[in-house]
Design a protein around this nucleic acid. Structure first.
Lengths: 255, 255
DNA sequence: CGGCAGTTTGATGTTACTCAATTTAAGTGG
DNA sequence: CCACTTAAATTGAGTAACATCAAACTGCCG
């Protein structure tokens, strides 16, 4: 039921966002938000031209920093394509990955409200980003309740995800944290892709998993090793293959 | 500067919330939100009677569960008085404290948008809670931008706090996590109370600290012991006394 | 072929957990 | 005011989980 809820919210975001971003400038969008919107724009005809002055699109290569914290920025960002990470840079040089950004995701609901962000964003793969003037988004939201609903929904999802991750970080073992991360991302990926044979696109390095769940890369490697031995799941070549879903769920279920 | 920001946001919430809740039914409010609102209501005269049908007040004894997760509830809750904890109940019987609720706090910004909550709330001390019909809050928000701003601000604060706590849980040692928690709460308490001699009201058991930062109560006791030995800080009798603030900040600074 | 980033493996060290006992503090009822 | 009870905090000993350090291995790309 939680899964249905998530997927429902995502669809709602997609639907409502049509009122914000036609997203017509994304030529090669393959997933989620962009494609859905693109189709609609085609149907609707060429009314919403690509040269609008309140939104533009960015094409960012893999590994590049997209946003640094505490810069005043006039735009709200939606990831159209590819994967990103949202993270906090810590004093000791480490970083905590707060969330993985998938196609259709607002970088954060807070970007709609505030012009300074407390986090950084980096491209994990090559990505496309839709940047929309915050002022314009806000005024459209004021005129259109479904946009407000979409932002509110995203906001709730974001907060719930953060809360659950806190619980995982605070009270779960290495195995359980990684299982939880896998399940959480699998649910989100499933909402965007058709998954066959339990094989999920998963462009993460072990380093990223480590930074997300608060372990060292070395220990992540060991845990993934045991997952492989036990034939629970295997991560390689950017694909997560799950062999024993019940086992994974047993480990990663928070409540 | 971060502190000023926080205090500013709090004041803004208090100001904007006057449009939502006169809060006149709280007889003994001593802190923050309620008192501010009460004063204003007196000035404004008795127009806003206490018998309004869209809000009521709850008096809840210490230790009582206020909200269980996944119940559809028609109200939005603001803590008027006392301390509460917001937490996730985990499968293994443990719980993760997500945040401490102080006077003036919305239980969560998500309560304004959704009728089912993913968390539980428990009274840490005896508390007073203002419950306002969500529908009414939403319609007042639609009519009054400053209410929207207040909720948005609270939302951003909540998300930022969660993100930083994730970083603390993921990458920080026991000492650092506890120092971080202390500093975070000290900042929030300072926004509500006048603090003298670095003595902060702090009605937490070591068990609560443990549940918030992901340690065992035993280990919390040891860490607090070293804090006391080194004369960094001391927690006893519901009072946190800080002797060496720079030392605490050195340990608990995230970035 | 060489270089490089990512992963794996081993040996060792440290942090924090577990279990259990003891002390302290805070009521409660006589 | 004092025995009795109970919750909370402290202390100690032993252990498990994860970190650290270092070396070897893999795949990939020029």
């Amino acid at each position: 039921m939680a899964a249905r809820n998530d997927a429902g919210a995502k669809r709602q975001i997609i639907r409502a966002m049509k009122n914000i971003s036609p997203c017509v400038a994304c030529p090669n969008s393959e997933l989620g938000f962009c494609r859905a919107v693109l189709k609609d724009a085609e149907k609707a005809g060429p009314t919403l031209g690509e040269g609008s002055d309140w939104q533009h699109h960015l094409f960012i290569p893999a590994g590049k920093l997209v946003l640094a914290p505490n810069q005043p920025l006039p735009d709200v960002y939606v990831l159209c394509n590819g994967w990103g990470i949202r993270f906090l840079q810590l004093a000791n040089g480490r970083r905590q990955i707060i969330s993985f950004l998938l196609p259709g995701d607002l970088f954060s609901a807070s970007t709609v409200f505030e012009e300074r962000f407390h986090f950084s964003v980096k491209a994990l793969t090559a990505i496309q980003v839709s940047a929309m003037k915050r002022k314009e988004v806000q005024s459209r939201a004021a005129a259109n309740p479904s946009v407000v609903m979409a932002v509110a929904d995203f906001c709730c999802m974001e907060m719930e995800a953060a809360d659950r991750m806190m619980a995982a970080l605070g009270h779960y073992s290495a195995e359980e944290r990684i299982a939880y991360l896998f399940l959480h991302l699998m649910k989100r990926i499933s909402a965007l892709n058709v998954i066959r044979d339990h094989r999920y696109p998963f462009p993460l390095r072990q380093q990223h998993i480590a930074e997300a769940v608060g372990l060292t890369p070395v220990h992540v490697s060991r845990v993934l090793g045991t997952f492989r031995e036990r034939r629970t799941a295997e991560l390689s070549n950017g694909v997560l293959q799950v062999f024993n879903l019940p086992e994974l769920q047993r480990m990663g279920a928070l409540s």
